[in-house]
Design a protein around this nucleic acid. Sequence first.
DNA 1: CTCCTCTGGGTACGTTGTACGCAGTGGGGT
DNA 2: ACCCCACTGCGTACAACGTACCCAGAGGAG
Lengths: 239, 239
Amino acid sequence: MEKTGSVWMRPERHSRGPDPAYSREQITVAAIRIADAEGLEAISMRRVAREVSAGAMSLYRYIGSKDELIELMVDMVQGEEPPPQAPSGDWRADLEQIAERQRDAMHRHPWLATVNVGRPTFGPNTLRGLEYALRCVDGLGLSIDRMLAIVLSVSSFARGFVQSELAEEEARRRTNLTEEQWRLTQAPYIRQILESGEFPLVAKVIRDAELPHMELDRQFRTGLAHLLDGISAQLDRGR
Amino acid sequence: MEKTGSVWMRPERHSRGPDPAYSREQITVAAIRIADAEGLEAISMRRVAREVSAGAMSLYRYIGSKDELIELMVDMVQGEEPPPQAPSGDWRADLEQIAERQRDAMHRHPWLATVNVGRPTFGPNTLRGLEYALRCVDGLGLSIDRMLAIVLSVSSFARGFVQSELAEEEARRRTNLTEEQWRLTQAPYIRQILESGEFPLVAKVIRDAELPHMELDRQFRTGLAHLLDGISAQLDRGR
DNA sequence: CTCCTCTGGGTACGTTGTACGCAGTGGGGT
DNA sequence: ACCCCACTGCGTACAACGTACCCAGAGGAG
């Protein structure tokens, strides 16, 4: 097994020996299924191997390490909904759509929001997405740096926002407590905050936090609109 | 040891037995020092215990679990630079400062950008920061939801941006490779991307990515300014 | 037919979080 | 003054982890 070279270059091997019983794709799909159902921390080599009915060590014939598996997962998810053939010409609408799709992907796969942090993946699907995003803001007379900055701003906003969205619910999954138990352990502290009078605005937020779901969609769109308004204003202003 | 109740309510105990030899604060400080120097993945109970010259299991007299330790770390860092006594009255400048300080904190403690994802911390310092941020946009005639949405947008943008900033360098730390080795394993794949002609804009980005450090500060400020411009426009437009 | 490479996977090692138990310590009640 | 016992620090133990290493068997290449 050659350890040299990126994941994305390693060929699906097979020349002399017996036919491989599994495939990188099959393993990646299984891992994604587990992460969707049980969270990212449920991903272990033994667990994934069990999912495809393989021995734990057999996976290493296909995948160099667990980190590599996760890179494959991220890139596969990125390819679930490929970008359009070409930008529409309306860069604002296109960027809006990109952000919306990124958010959708993170909602389908909540682990995605927490995992592609601190490790840049350069898989083919990810690259295609980045290339498309850059094309959306190409031809506006911007330098490549400016273009990248805009794309980076939009996708950073999307990722940051969804992270905030998923924070509470993901944390609740991590600790294996039921809603009842959680409320039992956390309630006294929350009550203390409300009654202390030290954080009046936070208290108001907690009290009025009954409107969660439809509102978040609107909040996302609003925040994104703010960002795009700002970008648009800069474009009008020159350059 | 009562497992019930939030971390933030558990008192620093001591009534009958011998004096505690350590303290929650001392342990948290040690953990932060380790994470700063060696990354978050270097944090283990045994490693932290060694740092304070304690037995591994002794830490559990002060801290309920590793996750709790990390919550304490996050909140302590949040308290490094407390918010001003009161907002200045210029909400735009205040939000700008908040975002800038969050970014500074994540740069001082790179693990912060990757850790307070998917687990909301409600420590006293974090709450103080949130309360202050809400005060900055209070009195503008906005509903509490609108206020929260604005604060959330700004801090989400900051976190997302810094994550993108730190992605590459953090990934390089994770794998224990030197710059030389990294270039050696990754270079062929990068070259392939450049030469394939399939991703012309990505290729241009890679080629022109010689301007890294001062530029990121400017990119952050520009993106943030876009966002704030958008918010400002919405405020002028009414409500 | 015989290699020799490649297969799946069992075993093993070091590290992790943490449950449990134990000896020692020192303030509170008598 | 005494003793009790709540509390201390911490050693041992266990299950689960990532993965290095090894080996038996399979099957194209010569």
